[in-house]
Amino acid sequence: MKILVCISNVPDTTTKIKFTSDGKQFDATGVQWIINPWDELALTRALELKETTGGLIENITVINVGTKDTEITIRKALSVGADHAVRIDAIPTDAYAVASEIAKYVETHPFDLILTGIESSDYNGNAVGGMLAELLNIPSVSSVSSIEINEGKLIITREIDGGKQILDVPTPLVAIVQKGIAKEPRIPSMRGIMAARTKVIEVVNPINVAPLTDYILFELPQPKGKCKMIPADQLDELIHVLHQEIKAI
């Protein structure tokens, strides 16, 4: 079985978000980049499956659509144990363009199981997985919270309202995974980092798909309202503020 994990390069989740002065682009100055947390959990689960199914999974490949700057996150994926990496050399303009680029690669390099995170922690588009399955004309399962392999068959569990749904899906398929798929992402070991030195990142030319969407404007959320603390024993003050200052009562 061959697994493909789609990884997106996103700003560290603690990044202070800024936009360019025209409001049309994210300002990436000084930003630290990481593997999208959902994608990293998908990769973690793929690695766990490889380790626990005794040779059933022959290869785990990670794929990313991005410029050369994303190679550090790809290298991390190789350091924690991915066998092979592909970088499609294009700026990821929108979900459709990304899905199209990956689909083109998969057409000539088939995989049994394709994993994507349910969304990326930057634009939260929630679209690449479904589009990819559609473009490849293969099934997709969303909100996947568990993937097990029993006697060579994939058992996929997804979260539904009020419970769980366990599915038997023919391969190849796209599993769009959410939190719970794996416990904690892995920390690369020195041995893993050393091993990653000899793993090649395959750079593929893009087919340059035009995006279907265009960004008009980004806006930062409004700052939260100010909080005024009133000591618990000053009820008169509370009533005064509610009545006179904010006129709520």
């Binding site: 550090i72 290298r75 350091s79 920390i187 020195m190 980092i193």
Partner: peptide, 18 residues
């Protein structure tokens, strides 16, 4: 280097997460 950043992050993760 890319590798030094990876090692730095690995130590940071161990310290912060564990």
């Amino acid at each position: 280097t890319e590798e030094q950043k990876l090692i730095q992050q690995a130590a940071r993760d161990l310290a912060e997460r564990e």
